[in-house]
Amino acid sequence: MGRYLTRKLIIYIITFLFAVTLNWAVPRFAPGDPIKMLLSRFEVMEGGKDILESFFVKTFGLDRSPLQQYVGFWRSLFAGDLGVSISQYPKSVFNIIRGAIIYDFIILLPAIILSWIIGNKLGAFSGVNKKADNFLMPVFYFLTSSPYFWFALVISYVFGIVLGLFPTSHAYSATMRPGWTLAFIWDFFLHWFMPFLSLFLVQLGGWAIGMRNMIIYETNTNYAKYMESLGATERLIRNYGFRNGILPQVTGLAISLGTIVSGAVLTQMVFSYPGLGYLMVQAIKQNDYFLIQGCFLFLIIMVLLANFVIDIIYMFIDPRVRHSYSGEV
């Protein structure tokens, strides 16, 4: 058990180092100097841009050699310093991310958890109920097959503009001030609903299909047949099937976390909902090295942490894992 966790931990550390390095290097060797980009759009007095340019180059230490910059990057990272954004100067990357990341959690956590739970339940139901399956399976497939942003846009248009049930954008109304009032929480909820719903529904399809197939598979295995012949109730067999089927689903959750987290970018674009994703797209378009690094770092950490938690959970629900590292399966 200890060996299992140690191994996982080492893999995560390697992943972390690799991803962070990659993410440090790619923007720097890509075309487009962030400072020049920023300068070209300022309207300042003739000669003012040269003054700004030398100011920036000095401020961001971009006149140092790449190696010095790389070493400096790790050094400040361990000091907890993510640097200062170029495009949003003089804000620190950490503060920018802190202001946005909470919105990722608010949308992503419920969408991931609820879609996984409900998706698995619905899938299991569909797997054992032929009649329901004929209707549900195409629905699941539709949900998982439609391009997310297209689906979200249609939802936003129908529920927001045609029916006028929900606001189409932002985290809360312009006239609202954040606080623990009923009015604000309700307003926040209304704004949160469509981004949540779209992410929830799209993911729901995938989980449901996975579980449906798993259940059908399990209820047709030899052991299920054997149990049946022993006179076990259908319900009991189904429960066994569900329990076996849930294991690959947990793995699936771990595997797809990266994709889901990234998918939030699209949600934020469609609903102009704040969050890391939009921040990163903007940072990339402006080639803001420090902000790209910071966003990426946070995403990686989030995904790694979630994976680690899932690994631990997996260890408890599947005893085989504990043994798998002491010998061949």
Binding site: T15, P27, I255, G258, V261, S262, V265, M280, K285
Partner: peptide, 17 residues
């Protein structure tokens, strides 16, 4: 490693350059 890197994120970074 490739599995935990948020894929769309990596795609965005790669394709932007």
């Amino acid at each position: 490693i490739f599995m935990v890197i948020p894929s769309l994120t990596l795609l965005i970074i790669l394709s932007a350059y």
